[in-house]
Simulated scan of single mutants.
Amino acid sequence: MIKRASQAYLWLIYSFLYIPILVVMVYSFNNARFATDWRGFTWSWYGKLFANTQLMDAALNTLMVATLAATFASALGTLAALVLHRYRFPGRKVLHGSIFVLTVSPDIVMGIAMLMFFIAAKIELGFLTLLIAHITLCLPFVAVTVLARLAEFDENIIEAAKDLGATESRAFRHIILPMIMPAVAAGWLLSFTLSMDDVLISFFVTGPTFEILPLKIYSMVRLGVKPDINALSAVMFTLTVVLVLAAHALTRTRRK
C-alpha cells in the first residue's frame, strides 16, 4: 500500500511538472492566434519563428554565451574543487563554505553586485560583462558537483600511481579526470541550463547592443504570449531533452 502511494505521489509530481510543458508544445501547433481554443493543426508558427531574425539572433547569442560560460565554469570549477579537496592551506574552510553560500545567494544580489563591479571597473556592458557574470553564476554549481564526486574518491589510487612513477600531471590526466568526468559533464549541463534561462542577472549586466533570448522573451510576453513563443519553447525543450539523453548515453558508454 505504501509503495503504491509513493508511486502515485511520484506520478503526481511529474505530472505537475511536465503537463504545462506538454500543453505549451501542443498549442505551438494550434491554428489560432491566441491559445484559448483549438482550431486545427498547423506548422505555420514554426515557419514564422525561424523567419523572425530578431529571435534567431537572440537565440544564437544565448547559445554562444551559454556554451562559453558552461565551458569556462566547468574548467574553473573543476580546478577549484580539486584544490579544495586535495590541498590544505589557510582560509580553505572559508573558501569551501563560500562556494555553498554562492549557490543559494539571491540572483538579484549577484546581479547588482556584478553591475556595481563593472561600473567601478569602467567596463562597458555587453557580451563580455554578460559572459563574466554567467561564469560567476555557474562556477560554484560546478565546484559543488565535482566536490561531491571527489568525496567518494579513493586517494590510495593516486598514491599507487605515484609509486609506479606517475607524475602529478599524468595522474590527473589518466586517473583523476576520467573518474570525475561524469560530475564535470553534469556540472557543464547544469551550467548551460542556468545560463540559458537566466533573466535577473542578465537584466543587470547586459547592454543594449547585445540581446539574449530570455530577456527578449520576457519583453515579448509582457504584451501577451504569441503562438510563435510556444513554438520557441517547444524547440528549446526538445533540444534540452536531446542534450540530456546524449549526455546520459556518453556517460553510460564511458562507464562500460
Rank of each mutant, 00 (worst) to 15 (best):
Q7N: 08
L10R: 03
W11Y: 15
L12W: 10
L17G: 13
Y18F: 15
I19Q: 11
P20E: 08
I21L: 14
L22Q: 05
V23N: 03
F41W: 14
S44M: 11
G47K: 02
L49G: 09
Q54C: 07
L63Y: 10
L63F: 15
T67H: 04
A70R: 01
F72V: 15
S74D: 00
G77L: 02
L79C: 14
R86H: 15
P90I: 05
G91T: 05
K93E: 15
S98N: 11
V101I: 09
L102W: 00
L102P: 03
D107Q: 04
G111V: 01
G111K: 05
F118D: 06
L128E: 13
L131I: 11
L137G: 02
C138T: 10
C138G: 08
F141D: 03
A148C: 14
A151F: 07
D154A: 00
E155N: 10
N156Q: 05
N156R: 08
N156P: 02
K162T: 10
I176L: 09
P178D: 06
M179E: 15
I180P: 06
A186K: 10
W188H: 03
L189M: 12
L194A: 06
M196W: 09
M196L: 07
V199G: 06
L200G: 01
I201M: 04
S202K: 01
T206D: 05
P214I: 05
P214V: 10
I217S: 04
M220Y: 10
R222N: 14
D228L: 14
A231I: 09
T238G: 12
L243M: 11
T251N: 11
